[in-house]
Design a protein around this nucleic acid. Structure first.
Lengths: 194, 194
DNA sequence: ACCTGAACACCGTTCAAGT
DNA sequence: ACCTGAACACCGTTCAAGT
């Protein structure tokens, strides 16, 4: 099937989101850009929140696919570093998407919750692979993954708001913080296998 | 001077923010709750954004005062841990305030930017104190402070959205991540002074 | 100096109606 | 099954006018 009204609505909503933030996503403008009337969206989505939820879930799935591809092409700890940098870079490049995907939902759509869980499982798997390869300290992989995600998320969010540091240089600083944490998580070099 | 319309407007906006999120803060409802007409706010603030900016700056100043008091009553590294926990707990308790204070601003009010810088300086000073006391590893205090803030911010934001972990227990997990990072930042015990 | 009431443009949502 | 056009309630903002 060609584009289809539903996909055209999602595309229009994403374009408006990136261009002008969440406030710019108007059902009327979404409809107009998709070539339909101002309330045709209601034939495809229950309401505005459902439309935004579908946009968020689609983007999160796309992002997770990129992270999976990184995992197939690099050594574990390199894939982990690339994944975290990619996560932060995406957040800085499209802050409104980032807030939509990672934000609070009154009624989180199943589609979005499942995409989020799949993305998190991918991260934990990468951490485990790096630990098994002896490239990362051996603490509980779930906790390590959560810590890494918290830093990437927090650094990107703070930087995106312009609050990282008075003299900060944006993304460079975000990557620096990710590297700092990965450095602290390096296994002790003195520890030798028996 | 007794309350004053301006303070009454700020109080009403904060109450609406906490009760129903940013979407519930309506200039009309703010005016009504403050006992004035629906557009009296325009006599005290340029527009809705300016009103929200004043609310954010006031709350950020209050929060920073709490962190300063913690610093005066505890040993440095204890104060640091308490400050980070307090930051995260406040974020979880009043998520809409947290997003307002730490979010993006089209035109960030001077008042808010200055309050944010003061808060960050307070955190860096606490890190430095902990390092001077030999309770925290000696890396660049600005980078360490940024890393700690990123974790507290990121963990609170992810947890607040319900995305920390499928089996996560909210605030307990956030504090756990803060403790994990502080653990990694402990100075090497084997290192003795000459 | 501070406030009110009417008015305007805009938005989410609903409904009756069309093919 | 999908879409349109009119309509409703609500919101931010402006303006003329009041004290």
């Amino acid at each position: 099937v060609p584009p289809g009204t539903r996909d055209a609505l999602l595309d229009a909503a994403l374009a408006l989101l990136d261009a002008g933030g969440a406030a710019a996503v108007t059902l009327r403008e979404v409809g107009t850009r998709a070539g339909v009337s101002h309330n045709a969206p209601y034939k495809h989505f229950a309401n505005k929140e459902a439309l935004l939820g579908a946009v968020a879930a689609r983007e999160l799935r796309r992002q997770t696919d990129v992270l999976k591809a990184l995992g197939r092409r690099s050594a574990p700890v390199v894939a982990l570093r690339k994944a975290l940098r990619h996560y932060a870079a995406a957040a800085l490049e499209h802050p409104a998407r980032f807030k939509l995907i990672s934000g609070r939902w009154e009624n989180e759509p199943d589609e979005l919750r499942e995409a989020g869980q799949a993305s998190y499982r991918q991260l934990v798997a990468t951490v485990q692979a790096a630990q098994s390869a002896g490239e990362l300290s051996g603490a509980n992989p779930d906790r390590v993954a959560a810590l890494l995600l918290a830093v990437a998320h927090g650094a990107a969010d703070i930087s995106s708001a312009g609050h990282l540091s008075p003299t900060g240089k944006g993304q460079a600083d975000v990557n620096g913080l990710i590297d700092d944490l990965l450095g602290y998580l390096k296994p002790a070099v003195a520890k030798r296998r028996k």
